[in-house]
Write a protein that binds this DNA or RNA. Structure first.
Length: 420
RNA sequence: GUGGCCUUAGCUCAAUCGGCAGAGCACUGGAUUGUGGCUCCAGAGGUUACGGGUUCAAGCCCCGUAGGCCACCCCA
């Protein structure tokens, strides 16, 4: 029988790697608390139709990266119907509408974390299953929340210990000013269509803004292309100016990137992406987001402003590795060892130490003491509690595995001694 | 989805011209009769990614497949 391996584009996070993920997740959870976001949990799969409408038919995620799944019988009809989520926003907005959450006191601040799925070709930093921390604010049209979210993401990167993260920001206008801008782009590129690649030509017809996304784009043609910020209507212009002013006010680092676009009608105004210095080109985007004031309506709800971002946890951890960022050590680990078959004593003492809040690893074997101590040290224990005759007096041996020093103390004194 | 490079023990890697599959680390046991780390000794660990072909003989040559990395595309 051939060896069964992890599915392509997925990976196992072994304990050594998983600690970094746990740490990053706990940073995100604490930030979500401090920024007053409420947790929401949504399904890992939804109707394909939801993503097609929520992300746009011409987005890469829908056009070529849908991870389709079927029911137990896996008929073609079922496979056509469902897909693993490529991102969480569409599902959250679906839930918002489905449960009438617009009646809740707003603006609503929601957060979720979990795996996302995109069926594209794996590469370092790019997986078919990857984790994202996501925040969304529904019902707040003002520029302050745009700046607050960008500042929040910056704070996240800072608190996990990353440096050199820059926010690229842009404004792509709204339903009023985007159509004329789109026309201006078409007018600019159409005369030079022979200088565009195959992909860019197709985008020019389907979704002209995304021509700017094309990295193969002729540099001169790109540099001379009309900028969205020069075509904003007055309300959009004021909104963008206010966002930038607020970013300056809170000291959030950013660069205006005129080629950053979200090319769909219900994505509006502010778009942003977080990139890390030092890895030009490949997988340098650590996270991204933007405003989607038209999305709730497109999915069948009443008009509601929306904005959010997703942060890639895999890439965050990858960047931490590259920058040599270390994860804070876990609390002290105590091993409980003993002689012969005194397992009842070991378990009782372990339970007492756990009552005091310690992490405890009792040795379940009857090996000789030396092997137990060796095993304890290899498991990462900083201390060994050695049980012997003195347990009758409520005392045990406490050995510091780093220094080798040992003394006899009361069981009820161990927690204090270990925390030192 | 396209192209390039790669795949030998758990990990990092050797193996001359096609001629007995190895080392270090890690793991297990012993020296040390119930106090770890150092040292020494020993052990276990392999369908050489998978499938086929050429050959007296294949880790090595040929074909195919899978997977990894890199580039493109795009994103997180």
């Amino acid at each position: 029988m051939p060896q069964i391996t992890a599915p392509r584009g997925t990976r196992d996070l072994l304990p050594e790697e998983a600690v970094a993920f746990s740490h990053v997740e706990s940073v995100s959870r604490d930030l979500a608390r401090r920024y007053a976001f409420e947790r929401i949990e949504i399904p890992l799969f939804e109707r394909v139709e939801l993503f097609a409408r929520g992300l746009g038919e011409s987005s890469d995620a829908v056009e070529k990266e849908m991870f389709r799944v079927g029911g137990a019988r896996g008929s073609d009809e079922e496979r056509a119907e469902w897909a693993l989520r490529p991102e969480p926003t569409a599902g959250i907005v679906r839930a918002f509408i489905e449960h009438g959450m617009h009646v809740r006191p707003g603006p609503l601040r929601l957060t979720t974390t979990g795996p996302m799925f995109r069926y594209d070709r794996p590469q370092a930093g790019r997986y078919r299953q990857f984790s994202q921390w996501d925040v969304e604010v529904l019902g707040d049209p003002g520029p302050a929340v745009d700046a607050e979210l960008i500042e929040l993401a910056h704070r996240f990167y800072a608190e996990v210990g990353l440096s050199g993260v820059v926010a690229h920001v842009n404004s792509i206008g709204d339903a009023a000013c985007r159509p004329p801008y789109r026309e201006a782009l078409v007018d600019h590129f159409r005369p030079h269509v022979e200088r565009l690649g195959e992909d860019a030509r197709r985008r020019l017809e389907v979704n002209p803004l995304r021509v700017l996304d094309d990295k193969a784009l002729d540099p001169d043609l790109a540099a001379s292309a009309p900028r969205s910020v020069d075509h904003l209507c007055e309300p959009c212009r004021e909104h963008f100016a206010a966002v930038l002013a607020l970013l300056d006010a809170v000291g959030a680092r950013y660069e205006v990137d005129h080629r950053l676009v979200r090319g769909l009608d219900y994505y509006t105004r502010t778009a942003f992406e977080f990139v890390i210095a030092g890895r030009e080109g490949q997988q340098q985007a650590l996270g991204g987001g933007g405003r989607y004031d038209g999305l709730v309506e497109v999915l069948g709800g009443r008009p509601t402003a929306g904005i959010g971002f997703g942060i890639g946890l895999d890439r965050t951890v990858l960047a931490m590795d590259e920058q040599g960022v270390t994860v804070p050590p876990a609390g002290p680990l105590v091993a409980v060892v003993g002689f012969g078959d005194d397992h009842a004593d070991r378990l009782r003492v372990a339970a007492t130490l756990r009552d005091a809040g310690l992490a405890v690893r009792p040795d379940g074997t009857s090996r000789k003491l030396g092997k137990q101590l060796e095993s304890a040290a290899k498991a990462g224990a900083g201390w060994a509690v050695i049980i012997g005759e003195e347990l009758a007096r409520g005392e045990v041996g406490l050995k510091d595995l780093a220094t080798g020093g040992q003394r006899t103390i009361g069981v009820d004194e161990v927690a204090t001694a270990v925390r030192g």
